[in-house]
């Protein structure tokens, strides 16, 4: 069987590049004022999401992947954070230009988010039933009784066994996986058009992770919701994403349809990450390791942020930051030497 016969997924979802994206982040810059100086957390990030699509944003701690998501949700603490440039367009409207009132109409209702740590995201002193029901009472003015009925339906939908009996339980009475289901129930309560999942399974065991990822995939199949999956795990991405944006030092260094990226990465950082994964055929041998460490966001190098660690580095990498070169109809790579990286020849 030919392994390359799998047709690449359309990178732009069902709508195609001509149609309107559901959500488009354009040239976003976010800074944080700290005592040590200005931390440039996000430096010109652009990505788009179409209905029914799953976009994975892959990066390590400090890459800016979560800050971008918080900017979309409008939950950044400002100050110390400041959005210094850029737009976030949701169905054509720039969210950053809206009043706080208008934004709260979007937040939670049309764009919803789930977090890594469900225990601290849920209120410990209210029952889960009242927290799920609150979505309906606050946003739709539903009566307590109706809200409770809808909460049970939702708990069934996210497969919490014995939903009716567990309605009056508190978050600490649930396991980690069940708490994550409760948070998913709250997020999908109002049928959002975009669901942002920030490391939704990082705190969970692998067998529970598999359950949660399956649940998310199922919920997505049932609606035309677009999903942004923020993660550091190349395995989780490969399982569910349609397209990927890889972030490093507050920038997107590569974006591509999922099959293209795993088959032939165009950025040395992506390539290094893929090569450092332990695999059967690498057993007993030294793992490929990316040298050095992630950049200091307080003191970003003028050129490419990855240059100090890069095996393809040339003189101009240290002085000129590479733009996101267009390397195909649906691909971009922010490396001056993406051709060499794509060919697999080490510089």
């Amino acid at each position: 069987m030919n392994m390359t016969s799998t047709p690449p997924l359309p990178a732009w979802g069902a709508g195609g590049p001509g149609s309107e994206p559901l959500l488009a982040v354009e040239d976003l810059h976010v800074e944080f004022a700290t005592r040590q100086g200005t931390v440039k957390a996000v430096n010109g990030v652009s990505y788009s999401l179409y209905p029914g699509e799953t976009l994975a944003v892959l990066g390590e701690s400090g890459s800016g992947k979560s800050v971008t998501a918080q900017a979309i949700m409008g939950i950044l603490d400002m100050p110390p954070a400041r959005i210094s440039r850029g737009r976030i367009r949701f169905r054509g409207t720039d969210l950053l230009g809206l009043s706080e009132d208008a934004r709260s109409q979007v937040r939670g209702r049309r764009i919803a988010m789930i977090f890594q740590d469900a225990l601290s995201a849920l209120n410990p002193v209210f029952t889960v039933g009242s927290q799920i029901g609150e979505m309906f009472r606050v946003h739709q003015g539903m009566s307590r009784r109706d809200a409770e009925r809808r909460a049970v339906e939702l708990m069934d939908r996210v497969r919490i066994p014995g939903a009716r009996q567990r309605l009056h339980d508190y978050p600490h009475q649930f396991s980690g996986g069940m708490r994550q289901r409760i948070m998913i129930a709250m997020a999908i309560a109002l049928d959002p058009e975009v669901l942002i999942a920030d490391e939704p399974t990082t705190a969970l065991d692998v067998t529970v992770q598999a359950q949660i990822m399956e649940l998310l995939a199922e919920l997505k199949r049932e609606s035309d919701m677009g999903m942004i999956l923020i993660t550091h795990d190349l395995g989780v991405v490969a399982d569910v994403a349609d397209k990927i944006a890889v972030m490093y030092g507050g920038r997107i260094v590569e974006n591509a349809p999922v099959h293209d990226l795993y088959r032939a990465p165009a950025h040395p950082y992506t390539k290094g990450l893929l090569e450092s994964i332990p695999r059967v055929d690498r057993k007993g041998r030294e793992l490929y390791a990316i040298a050095g460490m992630p950049p200091d966001l307080l003191d970003m190098p003028p050129g490419c942020a990855f240059a100090p660690r890069c095996p393809y580095r040339q003189d101009n990498c240290v002085t000129e930051a590479p733009p996101l070169y267009r390397i195909g109809p649906t691909r971009g790579g922010a490396c001056h030497y993406w051709r060499e990286v794509l060919d697999g020849s080490h510089g």
Binding site: T6, G177, V206, A210, M213, V237, A238, R263
Partner: peptide
């Protein structure tokens, strides 16, 4: 079940993969 739950860092053939999803905790 544990082995089948590990996400594989390769999207090729992901739809055909066998996955034993354990019920409950």
């Amino acid at each position: 079940a544990l082995l089948s739950a590990v996400p594989v860092p390769n999207p090729e053939g992901r739809a055909r993969r066998e996955r034993i999803v354990l019920q409950g905790d």
